[in-house]
Design a protein around this nucleic acid. Sequence first.
DNA 1: ATGACTGCCTCTGGCAGA
Length: 257
Amino acid sequence: MKIASFNINGIKARLPRLLEWLAEERPTVACLQEIKTQDEGFPAAEFEALGYRAIWHGQKSFNGVAILADGALPVEIQRGLPGDPADEQSRYLEAEVRGVRIACIYLPNGNPLPGPKFDYKLAWMERLRARMAAIRAEEVPAVVLGDYNVIPRDCDVWSPPAMAADALMQPESRDAYARLLNDGWTDALATHNPQGGVWTYWDYQAGAWQRDHGFRIDHALLSPECADRLVACGVDKAHRGRDKASDHAPVWVELRG
DNA sequence: ATGACTGCCTCTGGCAGA
């Protein structure tokens, strides 16, 4: 089964590209981030026409996440990241699909720093760690995937100095990410590409795509029950080069069984 | 180089993104 993540940067503007990607790549599960629409604006019928059923957690203008599954309705487990009742941003949706726990995340960017946005990012990462520990304790096959907004290693960015001041690669951001791995989660793309050089994001500005100035911030973290089943993973890079593309490319993992 | 581009919901310019 193929489980994918795609930060689509607006589901209204991206719908033709998104439907095209689903039809061509046919992921079993697709986690979407930055749908940027309220719940009532979600194009569920367009996905059903392709054989996908979905659950979604929308928000006006910003954020918003969704989980699509081929031929099955995802069984919702958790809507919104626990740990802060005052947090109303739509960045977390968790479900079960075909016996696998799927958590779709859109981790806060954190810029500018220092400031409240960076504080919110770090607090959100601590809450995520707690939720992932709870999932681990259930000992179920689980994949926590999405836009983590963290560049884990220097080999995950085209130019470390160019991004050094960015919230994506601050030591605090990296340490919080490393704690997730220390807790027993496996970064699928990093495991299969220890040398780095694999990007999932290219800025719209300054010809970043044409110059291959990218970095890796979209990740799939596997529980031990899933890490044993990992047979392949990758980035659908070609989709980033198409007309009216998102600034992110889809990432995916293929699990045995 | 206070740059660059894109999407959203319109206070069609300001904000957010990364």
